[in-house]
Design a binder for these strands. Structure first.
Lengths: 223, 223
DNA sequence: TAGATTGTTAATCGATTAACAATC
DNA sequence: TAGATTGTTAATCGATTAACAATC
């Protein structure tokens, strides 16, 4: 697997072809590691072993080492992985090292909760705009943002270089916002509603479904 | 695979051993189908084909048919699957056909958004209690619930038969609530914070990480 | 050194998918 | 009947993991 020389890779070096696309499973697991690393860093830890990562992610520790060693020798035997170093490496592998700009739609309770939290900021996303249709909300301050009118969508997307739209609107408004986002050229939509969205094939929709996740978790608990 | 007779299964009959545990992948995919079926039903659709399911889930249509045919002949050739029938069958396969009772922790913006939404109710979860530590919030009405004092946790869990605890509290309070939930005998925790929770092995923690999901989605978009 | 943990091999197991007969 | 779509086969491909040498 891979065409790299079979010896003497320095830590940080990559033994994969550039542009080789990760499999779905590897990309999903790398994202999970990133989450744990981010939290472990916040808690003041400096190194972490594959066994500790395994305890938090429920992913087999051999698989974790294998996933990582496909890209370089990131760890120290007998010690583990340096958290800050590994974080940077995984961000690079996932090509999400830079900051990505997000627009948030819906200034209701969910939208406010998102705007005021660090969940996106912690992973290199900047929420740079907040929109709502309710005229009474325009101009209101929510966390660090000011609520903008929906009609300013296209102009703001272009000016701010927004690549992701996050939908925290009522289900009934989701398709309409999605259509406008597509129109404005945004190609990644993160959908907090349960609405099934119709979008062109080049647009990626990711729907957050806590209840579905919970059903899944519950199955393994009940059986 | 399986020990059932190889002919004449009626729709709804199951050709698997009871108690055979689903693989992680199958359980995850069945949960996804359920989400789409629930929404399609709301939209008034009566039948759905494996190709339509594929378009919404990005799961290969052959795999969908294969996943389903492992449990019975649920579809009609030339027609597709009846949505209400298939929904019931998948709920039965996942053994989540009954209603499960949930306690929600944190009556802040996120907690309120959850309490007032249908996201859990749509999938057979009843949010039956809402707790907060803030004395000023006790007794407050949030959606259909009244905010209870945290000290009533154990008694309420027992009285209401609560099996899942949902954490919508600040990260700094998450571990403390988790400890109390474990103490009260709750063994499934759904964690909306990014805090890494320390729990005994018999307790299942599912952490919701929209930003991590987004990183993952973005990888496939950027490459 | 002794203990710990990585990186890697080798074998197995399950997931995935193209193709197509069956049948509504 | 003709068209559509399921259910199933057969082959491939990738994920998973136990085991252990390498080495910090």
């Amino acid at each position: 697997m891979g065409t790299a020389p079979d010896t003497d890779l320095e830590p940080g070096e990559v033994d994969r072809e550039e542009g080789e696309r990760l499999s779905l499973g590897v990309a999903a697991r790398l994202s999970r590691y990133l989450q744990v690393l981010t939290q472990a860093h916040k808690m003041g830890k400096e190194t972490i072993s594959s066994q500790e990562l395994s305890a938090y992610t429920h992913i087999n520790s051999t698989q974790i080492r294998r996933d990582l060693s496909g890209f370089g020798k990131f760890g120290k035997r007998g010690v583990g992985y340096r958290i800050d170093f590994l974080t940077d490496e995984i961000r690079r592998i996932l090509r999400t090292a830079g900051n990505h700009r997000i627009a948030l739609f819906g200034a209701g309770k969910l939208g406010q909760a998102i705007a005021e939290s660090d969940i996106f900021a912690d992973h290199g996303f900047d929420v740079v705009a907040l929109f709502d249709v309710d005229p009474g909300r325009i101009g209101e301050q929510v966390g660090p943002l000011v609520v903008q009118d929906f009609s300013e969508l296209k102009e703001t997307v272009e000016r701010e270089g927004i690549v992701v739209g996050v939908l925290a609107v009522p289900s009934s408004a989701a398709q309409e916002v999605a259509d406008e986002l597509v129109e404005a050229g945004v190609t990644v939509i993160f959908n907090y509603t349960e609405q099934l969205l119709e979008v062109p094939p080049e647009v990626t929709v990711h729907t957050s479904s806590p209840a579905v996740d919970l059903l899944y978790a519950l199955y393994f608990y009940l059986s």
